[in-house]
């Protein structure tokens, strides 16, 4: 499951679209603002690749929509932006009574053997780690299902890899251009001096 060139292409197209929309708004502004614009448009482009089929992409779109509604709306004009932005994420169901009861049960369980204790500790650790993963993946707090969480993480990682690959190659290209000109200018200097 490596990012395919097709995915990259599509991402780049979307991203460019986003930047073009952004350009008149943010021309000749500070670096930090430009950075924010680039980041936002890249995020939306990445999320829109999935067309709202995954939980994380919907969460990401909603998050970016709160920051810059106009851009997101413009970028998602092809795929029903309204439904994506306003779509409710699944609610986390947590019955108060059940939680209380389970806590009570947990307190009652005290006499344990050593092996049980170790197993319980391991389980607790995994639970904490899973919670950490939930915090990292956008919209992870809505995935109360472990299988779903891992599936979404898989998808998210592939998308992130696509994003990073494309961005890095662009940055490299831009930097190489600058370096080459610097080099060229130096060479020119030498030739002039000669």
């Amino acid at each position: 499951m490596q990012p395919t060139s097709l995915m990259k292409e599509e991402f780049l197209k979307k991203w460019q679209m986003g930047l073009q929309i952004y350009r008149p708004l943010i021309d000749n502004t500070s670096v930090s603002e430009r950075r924010k614009a680039i980041k936002l448009s890249a995020d939306v482009a990445m999320a829109s690749l999935r067309r709202g089929t995954t939980c994380w992409s919907r969460a990401l779109i909603q998050k970016t929509a709160t920051e810059n509604n106009f851009l997101v709306r413009q970028m998602l004009s092809g795929i029903k932006a309204e439904t994506l932005i306003n779509k409710k994420l699944p609610k986390v169901m947590c019955h108060r009574k059940i939680v209380r009861r389970s806590k009570k049960n947990f307190m009652r369980r005290k006499s344990r053997s050593v092996s049980e204790e170790v197993a319980a500790k391991a389980r607790k650790l995994i639970k904490r780690k899973t919670q950490g993963l939930r915090n990292v993946v956008p919209g992870g707090e809505f995935m109360n299902n472990d299988v779903l969480l891992i599936q979404e993480t898989l998808d998210y990682i592939v998308s992130l890899q696509t994003q990073v690959n494309v961005m890095r190659s662009i940055v490299d290209a831009a930097e190489a251009g600058i370096e080459r000109t610097a080099c060229y200018l130096e060479k020119l200097k030498f030739t002039i001096e000669d």
Binding site: Q16, L19, Y22, R23, I26, D27, N28, V31, S32, R34, R35, A37, I38, K39, A42, D43, K129, G132, L133, V136, V137, T153, Y156, I157, L160, Q161, Q163, V164, M167, R168, I170, V171, A174, E175, I178
Partner: peptide, 28 residues
């Protein structure tokens, strides 16, 4: 996995920063 995802996210941040400094206008 958590580390990897976080590193990817950080990379995106870093790359967008770099891109913002490299090209003064959002003009690719």
């Amino acid at each position: 996995i958590i580390n990897y995802v976080q590193s990817l996210q950080r990379q995106v941040e870093f790359l967008s920063m770099k891109l913002a400094t490299v090209s003064p206008r959002l003009d690719f």
